[in-house]
Amino acid sequence: MSKIVDFKCTYDNSIGINKEVTEKLDLQFPEAYKYWDSMALLAEELKKYDKANFCGLPFCHTVEGEALGGSINFGDENIGPRAKDYICASAQEILNLPEIDYSKGRISEVLKACKHLKDKGENVLLYISGPFTIMNVLIDPRHIFKIFRKDPDTMQAIFNKFEKELLRFVKEAQKAGVNMISYADSSGGLNILGPKFAEQTVEMFTYPLLKKIEEMINDETIVLLCPKTTFALIGTDKAVWKDVNLGEPVKYSEACIKVMGQAKFVGQMCIKDKEFELKNGIIKTINLL
Results as ranks from 00 to 15, higher is better:
residue 191 N to M: 09
residue 29 F to M: 01
residue 61 H to T: 15
residue 233 L to Q: 01
residue 81 P to I: 14
residue 253 S to Q: 11
residue 269 M to H: 10
residue 149 R to W: 11
residue 160 N to V: 14
residue 45 E to A: 13
residue 70 G to V: 08
residue 72 I to Y: 05
residue 32 A to C: 04
residue 286 I to K: 05
residue 73 N to P: 05
residue 65 G to D: 02
residue 211 K to V: 09
residue 70 G to P: 03
residue 219 D to M: 03
residue 285 T to P: 00
residue 48 K to N: 13
residue 130 G to E: 06
residue 25 L to D: 00
residue 5 V to R: 14
residue 274 K to P: 08
residue 184 A to R: 02
residue 171 K to N: 12
residue 271 I to T: 05
residue 198 A to D: 06
residue 114 C to M: 02
residue 280 N to V: 01
residue 185 D to K: 07
residue 40 A to Y: 03
residue 285 T to A: 00
residue 176 A to S: 15
residue 244 V to E: 00
residue 221 T to P: 05
residue 3 K to R: 08
residue 250 V to I: 09
residue 180 M to H: 14
residue 278 L to W: 04
residue 72 I to H: 03
residue 17 I to S: 13
residue 240 V to N: 11
residue 59 F to C: 14
residue 288 L to I: 04
residue 205 F to K: 03
residue 3 K to P: 05
residue 79 I to M: 08
residue 261 G to E: 00
residue 197 F to Q: 06
residue 90 S to Q: 01
residue 280 N to P: 04
residue 288 L to Q: 02
residue 181 I to G: 04
residue 282 I to Q: 01
residue 134 I to N: 04
residue 172 E to A: 12
residue 186 S to R: 09
residue 117 L to Y: 06
residue 20 E to Y: 14
residue 112 K to F: 05
residue 26 D to N: 13
residue 154 T to S: 05
residue 87 I to A: 13
residue 51 K to A: 10
residue 146 K to P: 03
residue 13 N to F: 15
residue 30 P to E: 01
residue 288 L to T: 03
residue 182 S to P: 10
residue 149 R to N: 12
residue 61 H to K: 14
residue 49 Y to G: 00
residue 20 E to H: 13
residue 266 V to S: 01
residue 260 M to K: 08
residue 195 P to T: 08
residue 208 P to K: 01
residue 92 Q to I: 14
residue 220 E to S: 13
residue 13 N to A: 15
residue 11 Y to G: 07
residue 93 E to C: 11
residue 63 V to S: 12
residue 2 S to H: 05
residue 195 P to A: 07
residue 136 N to S: 15
residue 39 M to K: 09
residue 228 K to M: 12
residue 123 N to Y: 06
residue 173 A to M: 06
residue 249 P to K: 06
residue 110 V to L: 02
residue 6 D to L: 13
residue 116 H to K: 12
residue 243 D to F: 00
residue 28 Q to E: 15
residue 75 G to F: 00
residue 263 A to P: 01
residue 85 D to H: 14
residue 176 A to H: 06
residue 168 R to P: 09
residue 110 V to D: 02
residue 59 F to V: 14
residue 240 V to F: 09
residue 37 D to Y: 09
residue 47 K to W: 11
residue 47 K to E: 12
residue 277 E to P: 07
residue 75 G to P: 00
residue 26 D to T: 13
residue 54 F to N: 11
residue 112 K to I: 09
residue 35 Y to H: 15
residue 23 E to Y: 07
residue 196 K to A: 04
residue 152 P to R: 04
residue 220 E to F: 10
residue 264 K to V: 00
residue 62 T to Q: 05
residue 159 F to M: 12
residue 278 L to P: 06
residue 168 R to T: 13
residue 55 C to F: 07
residue 23 E to C: 07
residue 60 C to T: 15
residue 185 D to R: 08
residue 190 L to Y: 02
residue 151 D to N: 13
residue 48 K to Q: 07
residue 277 E to A: 13
residue 206 T to F: 05
residue 80 G to A: 07
residue 102 Y to D: 08
residue 242 K to M: 04
residue 80 G to Y: 05
residue 11 Y to L: 08
residue 255 A to F: 00
residue 261 G to K: 00
residue 33 Y to H: 10
residue 77 E to H: 15
residue 263 A to K: 00
residue 167 L to C: 03
residue 142 R to I: 14
residue 204 M to S: 11
residue 240 V to R: 08
residue 226 C to P: 12
residue 83 A to C: 13
residue 56 G to R: 11
residue 91 A to T: 03
residue 222 I to T: 00
residue 211 K to C: 10
residue 271 I to Q: 05
residue 11 Y to C: 08
residue 235 G to Y: 02
